[in-house]
């Protein structure tokens, strides 16, 4: 363990399950952080947290119906998440209610409904599995799912990039020139949901939010423009996955939380040392310019 590089990559060379975990986390690191960047810029950071609550009951219902089956739990989570996102988006666009309020209403209903269904069946679900995931036990199906989600996410983001940016910056203008705002908005909400569902395979529902948001928030301290933010967030997520998994192996820690804590540590470091408004940069101010 003396050589840091060996310490970092050793476990992945040695063990197949570590390589699988890394592959899954890297797929998620490419797809979730760009979505998180848009959430952060739309001031909807906490929306992903609410969405993860909305997905949980769906996955639980899938578990109740089919046991610990990936397709059933994924489908359940997708249905619950897309229903909540769709209904909240529709209410926001047709009534006076704002997005955060309508989302809160629907995710609470989804969560309560899920809890009621689970307790009605009287089954003892291992909630910890949902909360903290099973990153060290990713099978082929789970890896395919994560890869598929990453592919779909990048493709859809590329397709809706321009209207999504316009919808974020100036929704009123986009409304007057085009009807693309609505479809772009709903496609984006769909991306949030599928990434959270994918993340719950690797990290568990609650921590899936971590790999979506922490890299995005940390990237704010490194980049100024949107392209830079997205690239920086992906890089930070990859670093967090690599170091988190490696640390969890060496120190015998649960791997899901280790990845998120690694992302958290990178966020704290960025906040301190980041060149774009980081704390140190603010304390050590350069002399002002001529003009």
């Amino acid at each position: 363990m003396s050589d840091p590089v060996t310490a970092l990559v050793g476990p992945f060379i040695e063990f197949g399950f570590m390589r699988r975990a890394l592959a899954g986390c890297l797929a998620l690191s490419v797809s979730a952080p760009p979505v998180g960047v848009f959430l952060m810029l739309r001031r909807m950071s906490l929306m992903s947290d609410a969405m993860s609550h909305a997905i949980l009951p769906g996955a639980a219902v899938g578990f109740l119906v089919a046991g610990l089956s990936l397709p059933a739990m994924t489908l359940g989570g997708l249905v619950a998440g897309l229903a909540v996102a769709g209904l909240a988006g529709a209410v926001t666009r047709t009534t006076a209610l704002r997005e955060d309020a309508s989302l809160a209403a629907f995710y609470l209903m989804s969560l309560a409904g899920g809890v009621m269904l689970v307790s009605a069946r009287g089954s003892q679900i291992d909630l910890l599995h949902f909360l903290f995931g099973s990153v060290l036990a990713l099978d082929d199906a789970a890896l395919t799912l994560l890869g598929g989600i990453a592919t779909v996410t990048l493709a859809v983001l590329a397709l809706i990039y321009r209207p999504l940016v316009m919808e974020c910056v100036d929704p009123l203008f986009l409304r007057t020139v085009s009807r693309a705002g609505g479809p772009a908005h709903f496609a984006f909400l769909g991306l949030v949901v599928i990434n959270l569902v994918g993340g719950f395979q690797a990290l568990g529902t609650l921590l899936a939010v971590g790999l979506m948001l922490l890299p995005a928030v940390a990237a704010r301290f490194w980049a100024r423009d949107l392209g830079g933010l997205i690239a920086a967030s992906v890089l930070i997520a990859v670093l967090a996955s690599l170091s988190g998994l490696s640390l969890s192996y060496h120190l015998d820690l649960p791997s899901g939380p280790a990845i998120v804590l690694a992302a958290g540590a990178l966020y704290l470091a960025s906040m301190l040392a980041g060149p774009q408004g980081g704390l140190l940069r603010r304390l050590v101010r350069g002399r002002h310019l001529e003009a």
Partner: peptide, 20 residues
Amino acid sequence: DEIDRSFPLSVLDLAAMGLW
């Protein structure tokens, strides 16, 4: 206007929206 001025967008990109 409902423009989010904190969004990391350049002046060129803002004006170019007119080409939609």
